[in-house]
């Protein structure tokens, strides 16, 4: 399960890594940081008592912004995870032969599509929060 969810993040990190590699300007820790942050959020997601977290913090305080940020991040990670799972399952259902023609191409397009959709989601989500008066 967690491996499936990790797939788009790993792809993103790998693309980042390759881009840095080929640009010849030296590597940074960013790709590794991406994966590390993702894992940290997933683990935190298991341990933090999310339900009660918001209720205890005073709106407007520094801590409130942090809690809000954590909630939004968690929201995103869970959406990304669910969408990844569903897309990969839909792809598996239509392939009679796991490694047959089109298998790699469709995997690449499916993962690329997830990245695209998560960007669209992020924009839509941000717009919705703006309308509600949250955000800057």
């Amino acid at each position: 399960m967690i491996l499936r969810r990790l797939a788009p993040v790993l792809l993103f990190a790998a693309v980042l890594f390759l881009m840095q590699w080929f640009s010849g300007r030296g590597l940074t820790a960013l790709p590794f940081l991406t994966v590390a942050v993702f894992l940290a959020v997933v683990l935190l997601g298991r341990w933090i008592p999310w339900q009660s977290l918001g209720a205890r913090v005073r709106p407007g305080s520094r801590l409130f912004s942090l809690v809000l940020f954590l909630h939004i991040t968690r929201h995103f990670v869970s959406i990304l995870g669910q969408e990844t799972t569903r897309v990969l399952q839909a792809r598996a259902l239509c392939l009679r032969r796991r490694w047959g023609p089109g298998a790699f191409r469709s995997l690449a397009w499916a993962l690329a599509g997830i990245l695209g959709r998560s960007l669209v989601r992020a924009e839509r989500f941000y717009a919705a929060q703006l309308l509600r008066g949250l955000g800057e």
Binding site: E83, R86, V87, Q89, A90, R91, L93, C94, L95, R96, R97, G100, P101, G102, A103, S106, W109, A110, G113, R117
Partner: peptide, 28 residues
């Protein structure tokens, strides 16, 4: 033939034609 509640989950190729031909080409 399964149609999910959310259609975006099963259309991910760069064109509809490729989405539709994928299962056919895959089985040869």
């Amino acid at each position: 033939g399964v149609v999910f509640q959310n259609p975006e989950d099963q259309l991910f190729m760069p064109s509809l034609e490729q989405d539709l031909t994928l299962p056919l080409l895959n089985r040869g």
